[in-house]
Design a protein around this nucleic acid. Structure first.
Length: 938
RNA sequence: GCGGGUGUGGCGUAAUUGGUAGCCGCGCUAGACUUAGGAUCUAGUGCCGUGAGGCGUGGGGGUUCGAGUCCCUUCAUCCGCACCA
């Protein structure tokens, strides 16, 4: 019987569906394990061979855990909202829902062929109303909450109102937009609308005027992680800064917890570091500086409080509200012009062209420690969004201040002994202070570190400022001026937003006449004929009725991509629940994700937002874990490996790689699917494109050798390899094995189909172990020989260890060795082969299921028991020791197990070969490491 | 500029964590069988050298009986953040 992978794979895939083999349910009698893939956005191009890499790895791990007795939750779904479907709709008029469901169907078809053990009954799609009901619901919970800094968790907004009613803003320590100050009496005197306005300053989901990244080309705002170097990540269009009234999530309130949480989870250091970077905690001092001739002051933030004695000027961000305050009449024209110029420049221009620019405001500040007058400047090197938008400039010890001081001829006062600041600033936080003393505070002679601490203490004691921690992490802008996203469950009454009652959720995405913004510039939802809220009838009503007093406009923006992906892992636990996001029972059982696999491109987006979202739900008491993903692995990207042919210029002749230097050639991408091991299939090439039909070839050794290069996998490079084609040719089991064999899971590597024969060959070899020469099943039921036991137990240990440390490539190698060795032993022992089949099941489930049944089993191999490792099968009678002289191995000796160090040493030295290396001298020292090595020092 | 990672044959990689460097696979060489194939099997394959042997984990230095692994230094390369005060 031949290894017919096509027959085997379709047979078992159908059987698994029929038997519901992969359906899981809560089962308190078994330990749970939750393995999750980052769900894909179903793009129109379908899957290429790089996409399933992470899915295969997680599938291997899931199956391994299942074979070890765990109840494994391993679901899959789709992140179905997104820009490409909407852009396609704008171009073609096809509804994004149609595009999306078509793409999903294609994805599913491709995924199914690979033989994953997903429980598809738990599938979620973010664009499905029964799913996004809970996205809207969570948003409303955030709207109705604020963040208490004292208890470090989210609280119901009612608690805040109660606080205001009792004592106003006194003793308030909560996350907010701006620090407000009012008494209880003042609060009670406010109108309802004023109160709502104030509460907006504290809500976790809030509507506010914020500086946003506006992308005119996409017609929408973008979050910080959706912008890179002033361009949109999707599309690469320019992005500009703009103040807009937008929904935002107060992610910044969670900055410290997001940071601290990293210490409790098992992610790679580099990913944690990226998140720490993004959160950007910086501990410093806020200090108030008076403005000369007024009783006004302003606050700056610094991490170098020790350098106050070296401040020679102050700088405000051009966008700062203080600019208008400090600008004097005679400087007004210059300042206005500078501010206007700054506004004109996009983020990108600012980054590209870092010229030192600035303008004097006309005012002076008073240094609170030296009482000296220092000029206040305005410059775009200070960012409005960080700290207080104002800095104290210490040119001697900050390179940016230094450049500014040089440009505008401002004084530079060195503060650290031995630092030469004539050419450049001395930025390092080290050294001994000088020039730093007044009547009350003397830093001279102290180290920088000591000075920072001492100044902090002084500033706090004197009431000049306070110790402050700043974060780079910004609140997440949550509005998108797009159609294809979750609608907000929000309507407006007198310009104030109100939440639609929770029992009316979900608010479904309406049909629109066009996917573009309306003529009046409103988002696409403005094109919906039925998109307003009828408070009485509680239904979505016709916009035309809006004059009616009970009908109100609905929010026209939709939610961003990360909304639907922030809590999807919870929904998989209980996907059909209509009463709750997830039931307590399901949540208490499945807890959180034990293993999460996905790409590192989500490090500062999805993985921050979902941690935030999850912590919020945790604060609300809705779920039992505050970190969603316990262990996370980033699978590497699979790049394309392009092939080239070389056309002799001006001809239709193509020259093989080795001979191309003899001609003047032009390099042309050739479809990698008609190249094998870098050898071009000439006939396929002629048939590939009409222009090559009469191509001629200059061959080497009768072959046409192609050049190659690693590039991004894309259609235009003709280097896209479709998993379907690989499966057609080699089968899903070979694809799975090969992807795992390619290299460490977390490493990026080019896809190279060369070498796939090797793993395919190995599967056929394994298959042949079960059959005799004539192709008949041939097994023996004797007890395994000690040699066979040794081979299989060595493999059990290796595979188990390797899977647990996610070293899948070495697992596959171990199989190959095992199969080779069993082949050499001509092993057809039923017990040994049973163990082998179970070991391989996570990697190649189809062929293993077939062989499992050929071995006489009637259950599925998915429910088999992982073979137990027994060390005594590996026990040897003798140990081979390499004998080294001065660290260099010279020969080997064989010793019985359990020989004493002295005996081993004796044997090594008395060996006849030893004489040659000792040259008659007595060794200075002999090192014997039991079971390892003998080293003799001469 | 700051932070993190990586560097081993022609190629993808491995090395029990300080103990025989190069497992496994590709490729290549030679051979066997042959229905001539992109099948299967056998042997070989780090480099130099006919050989004994020497040299080898980006370079230089160090610790150690012993270093791919630890320390210092330097180069190359990839990733993240970046006028963040």
């Amino acid at each position: 019987m031949e290894y017919n992978f096509k027959e085997i794979e379709s047979k078992w895939q159908n059987q698994w569906i029929a038997d519901k083999t992969y359906k899981v349910a809560v089962d308190a009698s078994r330990p749970k394990f939750y393995v999750l893939d980052m769900f894909p956005y179903p793009s129109g191009a379908g899957l290429h061979v790089g996409h399933p890499l992470g899915y295969i790895a997680s599938d291997v791990y899931s199956r391994y855990k299942r074979l070890n007795g765990f109840n494994v939750l391993h679901p899959m779904g789709y992140d179905a909202y997104g820009l490409p479907a909407e852009q396609y709709a704008i171009q073609t008029g096809q509804h994004p829902a149609i595009t999306t469901s078509k793409n999903i169907a294609r994805y599913r078809e491709q995924l199914d062929k690979i033989g994953f053990c997903y429980d598809w009954s738990r599938e979620v799609k973010t664009c499905d109303p029964i799913y996004y009901k809970w996205t809207q619901w969570a948003f409303q919970k955030m709207f109705n909450s604020y963040y208490c800094n004292n208890c470090q968790k989210a609280q119901p907004i009612e608690n805040l109102i109660a606080h205001f009613e009792k004592e106003g803003t006194a003793n308030l320590n909560v996350a907010c937009g701006e620090e407000l100050s009012f008494s209880a009496a003042e609060w009670l005197a406010k109108t309802d609308s004023e109160k709502q306005d104030i509460l907006m300053n504290y809500r976790i989901a809030y509507l506010g005027n914020t500086m946003v990244n506006w992308c005119p080309k996409l017609g929408t705002v973008l979050a910080n992680d959706e912008v890179s170097e002033g361009l949109s990540v999707r599309g690469g269009y320019p992005v500009e800064q703009r103040v807009m009234r937008q929904w935002s999530l107060r992610v910044s309130a969670y900055a410290q917890r997001l940071l601290d949480g990293l210490d409790t989870i098992d992610w790679t250091d580099s990913l944690k570091e990226t998140q720490r970077n993004w959160i950007g905690r910086s501990e410093g001092t806020e200090m108030r500086f008076g403005i000369k001739g007024t009783n006004q002051e302003f606050t700056i933030f610094t991490t170098r409080a020790d350098t106050v004695f070296g401040v020679t000027f102050m700088v405000l961000a051009p966008e700062s509200e203080l600019v208008a305050q400090v600008t004097t009449a005679d400087q007004k024209t210059a300042v206005d012009e500078y501010v206007a110029n700054t506004k004109k420049r996009t983020e990108r221009e600012r980054i590209a062209d870092r010229k030192v620019t600035g303008v004097f405001s006309g005012s002076y500040a008073i240094n609170p420690l030296t009482k000296k007058e220092i000029p206040i400047w305005i410059s775009d090197y200070v960012l409005a969004g960080y700290g207080t938008g104002a800095i104290m400039a210490v040119p001697a010890h900050d390179s940016r201040d230094y450049a500014f001081a040089k440009e505008f001829n401002l004084p530079i006062i060195p503060l650290i002994e031995g630092a030469d600041v004539s050419e450049q600033s001395f930025d390092a936080k080290e050294g001994i202070m000088m020039n730093s003393a007044n009547d009350e505070l003397n830093l001279n002679g102290l180290t920088v570190k000591e000075s920072i601490a001492k100044t902090k203490e002084y500033v706090t004691r004197k009431g000049l400022g306070r110790v402050k921690v700043n974060y780079r992490l910004r609140d997440a802008i949550f509005s998108r001026q797009r159609y294809w996203g979750e609608p907000f469950p929000v309507y407006y009454k007198d310009g104030m937003p109100y939440m639609i009652p929770a029992e009316c959720l979900p608010i479904e995405l309406p049909e629109v006449s066009a996917f573009l913004p309306t003529e009046s510039g409103e988002p696409p939802l403005g094109n919906a004929t039925k998109w307003a809220w009828d408070e009485k009838n509680r239904c979505v009503a016709n916009v035309a009725d809006i004059d009616n007093k009970t009908i109100f406009p609905l929010e026209l923006c939709t939610m961003p991509g990360f909304a639907g992906s922030s809590a999807y892992y919870l929904r998989y636990m209980d996907p059909q629940n209509t009463e709750a996001l997830v039931s307590n029972q399901a949540n208490n059982y499945w807890q959180n994700v034990d293993l999460y696999i996905g790409g590192s491109e989500h490090a500062t987006g999805h993985l921050i937002y979902s941690r935030f979202w999850n912590k919020f739900l945790f604060d609300m008491g809705l779920i039992c874990k505050d970190e969603p993903f316990q262990k996370l692995i980033n699978q590497g990207m699979i790049q394309g490996r392009s092939n080239f042919v070389y056309r002799v210029k001006g001809t239709n002749q193509f020259v093989s790689l080795g001979l191309k230097n003899q001609y003047d050639t032009q390099e042309i991408h050739v479809d990698v699917n008609i190249v094998k091991n870098d050898i071009l299939d000439l006939e396929a090439f002629k048939a590939w494109q009409p222009q090559f039909a009469d191509a001629e070839f200059i061959l080497e050794d009768g072959k046409y050798v192609c050049g190659w290069a690693v590039e991004k996998m894309s259609k235009s490079m003709f280097n896209v390899v479709n998993p379907d084609d690989i499966i057609e040719q080699y089968g899903a089991d070979t694809l799975r094995l090969y992807e795992m064999f390619l290299g460490p899971i977390d490493q990026s590597k080019p896809w190279d189909t060369n070498g796939i024969d090797g793993v395919h060959k190995f599967l056929r070899k394994m298959w042949r172990l079960f059959f005799d020469k004539d192709g008949n099943l041939c097994l023996n039921d004797a007890e395994p020989s000690s040699k066979e036991l040794k081979v299989i137990h060595k493999t059990i240990k290796k595979i188990s260890d390797d899977i647990l440390r996610f070293s899948f490539n070495t697992s596959v190698s171990a199989f190959m060795i095992c199969v080779n060795e069993l082949g050499d032993l001509k092993c057809n022992n039923r017990k040994v082969l049973s163990d082998l089949v179970v070991l391989l099941t996570p990697f190649a489930p189809h062929v293993c299921e077939e062989l499992w049944h050929l071995l006489g089993n009637t259950n599925s191999v998915c429910d088999a028991k992982w073979p137990e490792f027994d060390e005594k099968n590996l026990v040897e009678n003798t140990v081979q020791y390499p004998v080294s002289f001065n660290g260099k191995t010279r020969f080997f000796i064989e010793m019985p197990v359990g020989a004493t160090k002295e005996q081993i040493e004796q044997a090594a030295l008395s060996n006849e070969a030893a004489a040659k290396w000792t040259e008659g001298k007595t060794p200075k020292k002999v090192i014997v490491v039991p079971n390892k090595i003998i080293n003799i020092v001469i």
